[in-house]
């Protein structure tokens, strides 16, 4: 464990807490893409299958349970909670995310470390996480103005993988047999997808203005 990875995990946790806060405090999920939340639930379920087979550390296991439980709770809330689900932007959240799932599954079958069930699913979860934010970014552009909590949620979500890139660089230089190009390439793609969001987020922060994404 190194500081970059720890900061990355904490940033990821903060993004989830902000989203839970937004939904709980405002009893609304307007501006949040249910499809992105469903993709994240799938990412965690596919990646953390080793939760019961490989024990790495208490921290690792606890965080896996937290990520799986929170992502499922958010999906449940947006689908079933009688108050929250009314504020879901169903007509704006129209990204065909099933194509993302199919494409990532196909890629994982072609490119993975070892052609085993767990490795294919792990690669699938890495590829899917890289593109899971797309429905959310599309929804933000369509819904025009972005409320503060939603903007902060997306910002922290983007920042977490950027910390992981620093972690991979650090591990590359400090550990001998460290080769994890699948995560690195996907992580770079994932962070790059946030580039324009980060730019507009920075502009709105500098001008102290409302975050506006160009349509």
């Amino acid at each position: 464990m190194n500081i970059f990875r720890f900061l990355g995990d904490m940033t990821h946790l903060i993004s989830i807490l902000i989203l839970l806060l937004k939904i709980y405090a405002t009893k609304s999920c307007s501006g949040i893409s249910l499809k992105t939340q469903e993709l994240y639930a799938l990412v965690f379920l596919a990646r953390y299958l080793d939760l019961f087979t490989d024990f790495i550390s208490v921290y690792n296991s606890v965080m896996k349970v937290v990520f799986i439980a929170s992502s499922l709770a958010i999906v449940w809330c947006m689908r079933r909670h009688r108050v929250v689900r009314r504020s879901y932007d169903k007509e704006l959240d129209t990204f065909r995310h099933y194509f993302l799932v199919a494409a990532c599954l196909a890629l994982a079958l072609l490119v993975q470390e070892k052609f085993t069930f767990l490795e294919v699913l792990w690669a699938f979860s890495i590829y899917l996480e890289a593109v899971a934010i797309l429905p959310q970014l599309v929804l933000l552009q369509r819904s025009g103005n972005v409320d503060n909590l939603t903007g902060q949620y997306v910002f922290f979500l983007g920042a977490y993988r950027a910390f992981y890139i620093l972690n991979w660089i650090y591990r590359y230089f400090t550990e001998t047999h460290f080769s994890r190009w699948i995560s690195c390439v996907s992580g770079l793609v994932q962070t790059a997808l946030y580039a324009d969001f980060f730019y507009y987020y920075f502009i709105s922060w500098k001008n102290n203005s409302k975050l506006q994404l160009p349509a």
């Binding site: 990875r5 995990d9 990821h12 080793d50 490989d54 790495i56 690792n60 965080m63 896996k64 990520f67 470390e113 792990w122 992981y164 972690n167 591990r171 550990e175 047999h177 460290f178 994890r180 699948i182 995560s183």
Partner: peptide, 10 residues
């Protein structure tokens, strides 16, 4: 160990 380095990350 069975888990390669890459799987010790979240």
């Amino acid at each position: 160990t069975g888990t390669s380095a890459v799987k010790d990350e979240l």
